[in-house]
Amino acid sequence: MTSATPTALDRRPRLLVLDVNETLSDMTHLGDRFVEVGVPPYLAAPWFAGLLRDGFALAVTGRNAAFADVARSSLHTVLHDKANVEAATRHIMGGFLALPLHDDVRDGIRALRALGLRLVTLSNGSVDIAEGLFERGGIRDAFEHVLSVEDAPAWKPAASAYAYALGECGVAAEDAMLVAVHPWDVHGAKAAGLRAAWIDRTGAPYPDAMEPANLVARSLPELAAQLEALPADE
């Protein structure tokens, strides 16, 4: 259960803006790459959290750095005592090219499209990584646009990142909904005027300090069922 009460919706959104890393891609497999270079797999999660922290810090100070550059820099810190840091870094980064979708994503995306919703992505990662993920998963045709903050003024959760996606799609903020597993992303979208759905894959409490999501679901099919129950936007 979440510790923040979701805020009610009176209609479906016209546009869903989906996060990619961890929301759609199953990044637990990167732990195997850490093992293969002689590093404990439990370091994968704090490494990813650290690279997001660094990306946010750069965004706040006016730099829109490439995700891959920040990820490599953060890996150099984690792997600093390895004999061949560069080779180990390349091996782990290569794992992004082989990540699978979460088990619920394919059916969930199809269910959301069946409701007539427009689907796009907005990732702090690269377009190429997202495109490859969707091609491997057989869902690329479901997305109108595959967008990345690489082409926006700043990383999410900066308001300008969400504004970039809305501008590309020609949709007002109040007619769009972000879908993400990250409370910081939900919070950012809400602050930018979008509605938001939190995909709670772990059962962890939602942070009280963050703006609450409008909808909370444990999977994308569950989110589709919740949206189906709402009146369609006219």
Rank of each mutant, 00 (worst) to 15 (best):
S126G: 08
T61K: 08
T61Y: 07
L18H: 02
G170E: 12
G138L: 14
T89K: 07
A87V: 10
L18D: 00
H76L: 11
L52S: 04
G137A: 11
A196N: 05
A59P: 05
V17P: 07
W198A: 00
L215M: 10
A173P: 11
T61G: 10
W155H: 10
F34T: 02
E144D: 09
S148H: 06
I199R: 00
A191T: 09
D81I: 11
D69A: 12
V85F: 12
G188D: 03
D175I: 04
A68I: 11
G95L: 06
E150S: 09
E168V: 15
V70R: 00
L166N: 05
F34G: 01
H182I: 01
A49F: 06
G94F: 14
A65Q: 07
P205T: 01
A8R: 12
P6I: 15
N214C: 05
L117W: 08
R118V: 08
A65K: 11
I92L: 15
D128L: 03
A224Q: 15
G50E: 09
A111M: 02
A172Y: 06
P205I: 04
T89F: 08
D103A: 02
M27I: 14
L52W: 07
D175L: 03
R63W: 08
D104Q: 01
A152S: 08
C169Q: 13
G31H: 05
M210F: 07
M93V: 08
E86Y: 14
A66N: 06
D208R: 05
R11K: 13
L24P: 01
L178H: 04
W198G: 00
R33H: 12
L122W: 09
N214F: 07
V85T: 12
R118G: 03
A213W: 01
H29Y: 11
L97Q: 02
Y42L: 09
T23Y: 00
E228A: 15
T2H: 06
A83P: 12
D26R: 04
S73A: 08
G170Q: 04
G95D: 01
R218G: 11
Q226F: 15
G193W: 10
I199S: 00
V20I: 14
S219C: 12
A88E: 01
A213T: 00
G193T: 06
F48E: 02
P6R: 12
F34I: 04
E174D: 15
D32E: 10
H182N: 02
L133W: 14
A4G: 06
T7M: 13
N84F: 07
D151V: 15
L75W: 12
S126Q: 09
N214L: 04
F134M: 13
L112A: 05
G94T: 11
G31D: 05
